[in-house]
Simulated scan of single mutants.
Amino acid sequence: MIKIGAHMPISKGFDRVPGDTVKIGGNSFQIFPHNARSWRASIPSDDVSNKFKREMKRCKIDWENAFCHCGYLVNLASPKEDVWEKSVSLLKTEVEICNKLGIKYLNIHPGSHLGTGEAEGMDRIARGLNEVLNTTKRVVILLENVSQKGGNIGYKLEHLKKIYDLVDQKDRMAITYDTCHGFDSNYDITKKEGVEALLNEIEDLFGLEKLKMIHLNDSKYPLGAAKDRHERIGKGFIGEKGFAVFFSFKEIRNVPWILETPGGNEEHAEDIRKVFEIIEKYGIEVE
């Protein structure tokens, strides 16, 4: 079974997410644990978390297919001590929100070193992650690959590996692969040899079992453009044929796919249908 969904709004309550996911044709989802543009976050009440868990059960969504994404302000690579400290504090709260809701995975962008250099940035990220992981429980942090722009760390998978190696609790660390970010950074998944190279790199660096989520996004710009502009499925430079190549690998189909494409629930429903159209059109066998 293909595990697919989208980043879902929480404005009407966490408990609406599982049902809305099913309505758009999904069985997986990603949410923000709070207002993503704020440093403020609060732990949900027992009533809120219990309603959410009941809806998860009613909608028969596997907990392995439920993800949170950290807020936009978090930057563990920041050389600004106040920003770094607020990032660590907020990430701890986000982990506790995940724990209260029962969500196992929290996805983060590694961060931007703001011109101070990748090595220093990676050290700060690992120091922050150790602080978070050593004072919280259960939740697994997913490091996401990012576009090669500005001072971003993580546009190469080897960056994620260097951070991973510096973290104490490796059992609570895994990765997310974003197709647009990867395409921006010269990971060409439109060709069979490109996908094979990607999978081999993940296996060599982490083991494929550490790949827990794929952000499924087309790209508004060509390979290597480093623009970080997501596009609807099949409408960008990865395109239908490119995604058909990507989907043809069993290792890719085994991982939940989460759309972060432009638009809301209606557009995401259309993109989910498009994914299955591509699978059918190109004769991809789904177990």
Rank of each mutant, 00 (worst) to 15 (best):
S11N: 11
K12E: 05
F14L: 01
G19A: 08
G25E: 02
G26Q: 08
F29M: 05
Q30L: 08
I31M: 12
P33N: 06
N35H: 08
W39D: 07
I43A: 00
I61R: 04
N65A: 06
A66G: 05
N75S: 02
V83K: 13
K92L: 00
T93A: 13
V95N: 01
L101F: 15
G111Y: 14
H113L: 03
T116L: 09
T116I: 10
E120R: 14
V132H: 09
K137T: 02
V146M: 03
S147C: 10
K149Q: 13
G150K: 09
N152W: 11
G154M: 11
D165V: 13
D165A: 05
D165G: 08
V167H: 03
Q169A: 10
Q169R: 11
D178W: 08
S185L: 01
N186T: 06
K192C: 03
N200G: 02
I214G: 00
N217K: 05
S219R: 05
Y221M: 14
R229L: 00
R232L: 12
K241L: 00
A244H: 15
N254S: 15
W257R: 09
G263V: 12
G264T: 05
G264L: 01
D271V: 05
F276W: 12
I278H: 14
I279F: 09
E280T: 13
K281F: 04
Y282A: 00
E285Q: 12
